[in-house]
Write a protein that binds this DNA or RNA. Structure first.
Length: 354
DNA sequence: GAACCGTGGTC
DNA sequence: TGACCAAGGTT
């Protein structure tokens, strides 16, 4: 066994994490669900969701027999909702194709929706004690430092090298402690900022530490200049209600409720009449806010319009009048929630001043 | 190969 | 406080 793996395993047994909700089991389903929830998501955010999900969907058959809508309901708030759709889809696949038993073959596991090489390795090692290496963000950081690998770790060329190094380090046994040790080391000692090198079991062989370059690694993702966009949101207020519009099922905020949008140059009451057949009066501009996405920054100018007459009601699918309090509790993105809260404060103070 | 997909925490 | 990131995978 390599010095790397033996020291890591010994360290994990003493200093690693042993009481997370998905540990101390070899049930592939329980491990699978945890690994999907933990993709790009921190442990603290997962724990509450995991307990409720496992209580409602305790096994593969229960999950497969549930509706996608209910699975998404239990995922609501976790983000990356394709994970939930793929989890559900894969459960059905296991029932239909694999006789209801989670497959043990490493390549077969990777054919399931939402399971790539790293997640498959986590399941295979934790549930079936197979000799397969994970390569998640923790492991990339540990290896980039230990072997002084420069370049963004998720660049295909760099990632290929890290996969090869990770494979070379694998022990011949004790895969549960080893895999967990890789994660624990990255999560508790070899952190991005303020790494605790003095406590690290691998300090003697760490190339970055030897050159005092730990803080420089891993190389951050190259950032391209992001464009900025402007939009106007129409806040149509009818009494205590506001109008919401359902966004398309894919794309930014896909499937969520938001305000109708307009080009900032447009005449808003006229636009509201032509689009919705509603007579409105401009009331006020609400504070502008900005929201950062991965690839662009959005500047939002909310414009409040008061509904004057309601001769033509908006009854089409995809539109909704909701009481402001109810709207805040609906499936809305964060900027919409902020606008609603501003609106709520304005209306409250208006009532007091009347 | 690069864009896309959510949210919350950290500094 | 805006940038950066976290138990990645799919298109």
């Amino acid at each position: 066994m390599s010095e790397f793996s033996s020291r890591l395993i010994a360290w994990q047994k003493v200093h690693g994490r042993h009481d997370l909700p998905w540990q101390n089991t070899t049930d592939p389903y329980a491990i699978w669900v945890s690994e999907i929830m933990l993709q790009q998501t921190q442990v603290a955010a997962v724990i509450g969701y995991y307990a409720k999900f496992m209580q409602r969907f305790p096994d593969i058959a229960t999950l497969a027999n549930a509706t996608q809508e209910e699975v998404l309901q239990y995922w609501s708030g976790l983000g990356y909702y394709s994970r939930a759709r793929n989890l559900h889809k894969a459960a059905i696949t296991i029932m239909d194709i694999h006789g209801g038993e989670f497959p043990q073959n490493f390549d077969t596991i990777q054919t399931l929706s939402g399971i790539g090489r790293s997640t498959a390795a986590a399941i295979a090692s934790f549930a079936f004690n197979q000799i397969q290496t994970i390569l998640d963000g923790n492991v990339k950081r540990v290896l980039a430092r230990h072997f002084l690998v420069e370049g963004w770790p998720s660049h295909p060329k760099i990632e290929k090298e890290l996969w090869a190094r990770a494979e070379n380090l694998l022990p011949e046994s004790q895969m549960i402690a080893y895999t967990q040790g890789l994660m624990d080391l990255g999560a508790t000692l070899c952190t991005r900022s303020k790494p605790k090198c003095a406590d690290c079991p691998l300090i003697d062989s760490c190339a970055a530490y030897k050159q005092q370059r730990v803080h420089q690694l891993p190389t951050p993702k190259p950032r391209k200049a992001i464009p900025e966009k402007n939009t106007t949101m129409l806040i149509l207020v009818r009494g205590d209600d506001v109008m919401l519009e359902k966004r398309p099922p894919t794309g930014i905020w896909g499937g969520l409720w938001s305000f109708p949008e307009a080009d900032i140059s447009e005449n808003l009451p006229e636009l509201a009449y032509s689009r919705f057949g509603i007579s409105t009066q401009f009331t006020q501009s609400l504070p502008q806010l900005s929201h950062a996405f991965t690839h662009f920054k959005l500047h939002i100018q909310p414009q409040q319009l008061t509904v004057l007459s309601n001769n033509s009601q908006v009854n089409e699918a995809g539109y909704l009048w909701l009481n402001i309090d109810d709207a805040i509790g609906a499936a809305i993105p964060t900027p919409v929630r902020k606008i609603l809260q501003t609106l709520q404060l304005n209306l409250t103070s208006t009532h007091f001043s009347d």
